[in-house]
């Protein structure tokens, strides 16, 4: 769970970096997108790196989801008779949201792939430039797309906040009070940076900062 989670964190950091290229203009963004496909040629075939990444991500998501559902199932079996009254004292909102939040993120990823990768969900006409596809997707008249993405980023922030801390615990990095405080801080920091970084793009388009 922790290891696959860390793979995702690495990936979303890269993804976010790419997204922020939007602010460098259409040319830079499109070139970056193109370069991703030609990266490593001729050693790698066209889109080779992307497929490698996709394979790793696919394996990770299978592993991550498998572990998550196993834990979920074990938790349910560990307490079949529920409490009549149960108070949560220490649980953060994000820790309580891990399971349904994770499911939400999974659904979002599917939507996101259908939207930008396979373009099955076509909201804005066919465009060749990735830059144009992005910018046109988040126009004010299609505000609901932006809302979906922002909600997803909220879920991502929550998931990261607890996930980063929890991964540190699971990896045995937090066996004293100081390192626990650091792991908690890392959780909040990465949540804000990553979700914030992603949210910046649709928000900027919505507000007309990028067009």
């Amino acid at each position: 769970m922790a290891v696959t989670g860390l793979v995702f964190i690495g990936y979303v950091l890269l993804h976010m970096y790419g997204n922020l290229k939007v602010f460098a203009g259409q040319e830079a963004f499109d070139e970056y997108a193109h370069h991703l496909r030609t990266f490593g040629e001729p050693m790698l075939p066209h889109e080779g790196l992307l497929w490698i990444i996709r394979a790793v991500l696919l394996l990770s998501i299978i592993g991550h989801a498998y572990a998550a559902f196993t834990l979920w199932g074990r938790a349910n079996r560990a307490r079949t008779q529920k409490y009549v009254v149960k108070k949560a004292v220490a649980a953060t909102l994000s820790s309580k949201m891990m399971r349904w939040g994770g499911v939400t993120l999974l659904l979002f990823v599917i939507f996101h792939l259908l939207h930008f990768t396979t373009r099955t969900i076509n909201v804005n006409g066919d465009k060749d430039s990735p830059y144009e596809r992005v910018v046109s997707s988040f126009q004010p008249e299609m505000w609901w797309v932006t809302v979906i993405y922002l909600l997803a980023m909220g879920a991502l922030a929550m998931h990261l906040r607890h996930g980063v801390w929890s991964a540190c615990q699971t990896l045995g990095l937090t066996n004293n009070a100081k390192s626990r405080a650091r792991a908690n801080f890392a959780g909040v920091f990465l949540a804000v940076v990553i979700a914030g970084g992603f949210a910046l793009v649709p928000l900027s388009i919505l507000l007309g900062i990028v067009d």
Binding site: A75, A78, A91, S95, S166
Partner: peptide, 8 residues
């Protein structure tokens, strides 16, 4: 059950 580091 398994631990998910909630802290309760």
């Amino acid at each position: 059950g398994g631990c998910t580091n909630i802290g309760e």
